[in-house]
Design a protein around this nucleic acid. Sequence first.
DNA 1: GTCTATACTTCGATAGAC
DNA 2: GTCTATCGAAGTATAGAC
Lengths: 203, 203
Amino acid sequence: MGELTTKEKIFDVSLELFSQKGFTNTSIRQIAREVGIKESSIYNHYSSKQAILDDILSTFTNYFVDDLAEDTQMEDLLEKDPLLFYHMGSEGFRQLIKNEKIMKIFRLIFIQMYQDDQIAEFFHKHILEEPLKFWTSVFTKLIEKKHIEDLNPEMLAREYYAYAIFLLLEIFIENNSFPEEEIDRLFEEAESHAKFLFESVRI
Amino acid sequence: MGELTTKEKIFDVSLELFSQKGFTNTSIRQIAREVGIKESSIYNHYSSKQAILDDILSTFTNYFVDDLAEDTQMEDLLEKDPLLFYHMGSEGFRQLIKNEKIMKIFRLIFIQMYQDDQIAEFFHKHILEEPLKFWTSVFTKLIEKKHIEDLNPEMLAREYYAYAIFLLLEIFIENNSFPEEEIDRLFEEAESHAKFLFESVRI
DNA sequence: GTCTATACTTCGATAGAC
DNA sequence: GTCTATCGAAGTATAGAC
């Protein structure tokens, strides 16, 4: 259980360093040093430095593919009790920041996306477009069912979601890892934002 | 007028490259190449690569020191017509995105802040704390004068300001420079957010 | 204030012994 | 699957001629 293969060690150490200093500013030598092997041995597990990054990013994508199944459950929930919609988002947010590995990958993306076209596209698609599309559909339903005012659902989705991105950015500037109580505080803030927005538009 | 000294050329080229690829990923060689001189000649104008960055950052600070004088004028305006508050912010935002040099420095900060303690502190102080403090004071006044509901002014400031940071992040992911019409569109979106928030809390 | 030339360091990656 | 040894490229910066 506690046993890690060398490849897993390389993965973990690389993720830690990439998420702190960025991909380009992390050297194979430093990864090797912290893993406890020589740099040439890295190439026995990964064909290149880029291959390590690709492995990390696919971990991230797989996480959200699995998570998408939950989203459909969420839509069912929305049918039954639409007023819970704001709770869905903040609960999803809590799950996110509780997951240390995913948060590290998030940080890596936030660091690297301005310089790396591949990651910029990744961010744009998976962290902007898809969630905004999802929340637009949620608000559309809430409007149809006359739970909230007849406003532009895309605008509402942006008003709702922008705050989460802001919180992530703030987290990454202020902290690197955080304890349980900090997670609770962030959850509370996400929840409070959702509540505020909801109270503003409910009928 | 159109004549640039070599030092100014170095400044401009460095800012362009730093804002695109980040400080660490830009080499002295590349700066020299684009300026049209040899890399050793750079050191006749700047003592080091870091010195170029320092020069760029102090340009940014000076811009906002001058801008602070306008803020006090804004407070006077607020006394006379508090309902204009939301217009103040989006107009400031428009001035910001119209200023190409300042936007490049913003992008540089967004790129570099996760990896560079100096810039992280810079961002935290000048781009988070100070503006949030300013907007908290604005909302406090609006509450005192019973123009808006008696809510937590710090929360309102965050609700208001977070969206601007989100817009900046989105700009930097999607675009590098943009035409007049794009600036107008962004201004409209900032204004629309302010209006939405204001309508939600006005009495 | 520009150039050539070069010192010194660090990088990603490979070859080949064990 | 680890090691030693090494390559070629690229990085910052300096010395000194013009």
